[in-house]
Design a protein around this nucleic acid. Structure first.
Length: 242
DNA sequence: GAGTTTGAAACT
DNA sequence: CAGTTTCAAACTC
């Protein structure tokens, strides 16, 4: 659900795993190979893009370079200092996507199509109303995800706050939990989570039934979170013998 | 998850 | 070079 597009982690790069079956990951069809990387954590079959097949791999690289000496150079003319020379080196050749789907290499790289493109029916240019609408939708979706994440973070922090400062009521009573966990703060944070989920459902135009299901499920998550924290607190309490 | 659509890469 | 096929990913249902 949460796509990790974090450009921040420079140390480990969880390059998206490929699923090649026929290319042996030795053709440019394979994204790993095309990016000059070995396959790692991929789902490919019969993969030759690794150290065990170094000779074949080198041969394949040579073949690609023979065909196109630029094959392994970045396709986007680098976005240095936010400069506008961010354009696709070859341009796209889209026919049916309007260049507003990820099939289009320009659109995928979040850049406008340019004069070097040979696309038909292109809607991927600055003034394109279709493009603007799409961008706004994407922005809104991103904000939505951020808000939902924030709500969840808040809930768990409210809970952990409780663990720090609440006092036990009665620790006896069979399976009774030792603290009053459903405080005003936890309640509010939970409601925020549910509200965010509702907004999310609304935004993706879920039918009412599905929206209700999503919200209930979110409530379940919140509840589990509260209960497991409470249970943990009780266990801690017991071990300290309080 | 299965099936369809898409356009780059590969091939002729 | 243009036309066709192959391929893996994006997308849809």
């Amino acid at each position: 659900m949460l796509r990790s597009v974090s450009a921040a982690d420079t140390t480990s790069r969880p390059r998206k795993p490929c699923n090649c079956t026929k290319s042996q990951c030795l053709k440019l069809y394979c994204d790993c190979f095309a990016n000059g990387e070995f396959c790692s954590n991929c789902n490919c079959n019969n993969c030759f893009n690794n150290l065990e097949h170094e000779t074949e791999r080198l041969k394949a690289i040579k073949t690609c370079l023979d065909r196109n000496p630029e094959a392994f150079k970045p396709k986007i003319g680098k976005g240095k200092e936010g400069e506008s020379d961010r354009r696709h080196s070859k341009g796209c050749n889209c026919k049916r996507s309007g260049c507003l789907k990820n099939y289009c290499e320009c659109y995928e790289a979040k850049i406008m199509c340019s004069s070097i493109c040979k696309c038909v029916g292109c809607k991927n240019f600055e003034e394109s109303p279709e493009r603007k609408t799409l961008m706004h939708l994407a922005d809104a979706a991103e904000v939505r995800v951020q808000q939902q994440t924030a709500a969840k973070t808040k809930l768990s922090s409210q809970i952990s706050d409780l663990l720090m400062r609440t006092t036990p009521i009665i620790s006896s009573g069979g399976g009774r939990l030792p603290y009053t966990f459903v405080t005003k703060e936890v309640l509010e944070a939970t409601c925020e989570c549910l509200l965010e989920q509702a907004k999310r459902a609304e935004q993706t135009h879920e039918p009412q039934e599905e929206a209700e299901r999503m919200i209930l499920e979110e409530f379940g998550h919140c509840l589990m979170s509260i209960i497991s924290s409470a249970g943990k607190a009780k266990a801690d309490c017991a071990s300290i013998n309080c």
